[in-house]
Amino acid sequence: MNAPTSCVKRYTVMLVDDEESILNSLRRLLRGKPYDLLLATNGAQALSLFEQHSIDLIVCDARMPLMDGPTLLREVYRRNPECVNILLTGYADMSMITQAISDGYVYRYISKPWNDDELQRTLDQALEMQNALRNRDSLA
């Protein structure tokens, strides 16, 4: 019998948004979760964090100066397709979102203002799926 605490897997989650207030509110929302949170306010910073850590999931704003969300996530996907990418978007540019999703580098998109429960559920599901895939691959 394992001790229950050892069952709780910790994930590394990176939040990217050029607005710090958004990062802070997401940090508060995910405080009780078994996540190690990394915060980045721009694409370059996010990529450098991505190099240094093994990141399981990224929640990323769509509109950012210099490097926008889809570009960053495409780059992340190129480096490690296992990382689950979630796009957070304030405006519904459907063509951009569908393109990103059909190209496979964005798992889901969440519109701003987000619903707290929905965002948490989405993260839970995404990580669960990632876990299941990893388990399957390790069995193969």
Binding site: E19, S21, I22, N24, S25, L26, R28, L29, G90, Y91, S111, K112, P113, W114, D116
Partner: peptide, 11 residues
């Protein structure tokens, strides 16, 4: 407006 509403709601 959606940006500030987003974090205010969540906060």
């Amino acid at each position: 407006i959606n940006n500030p509403i987003g974090f205010v709601c969540s906060n």
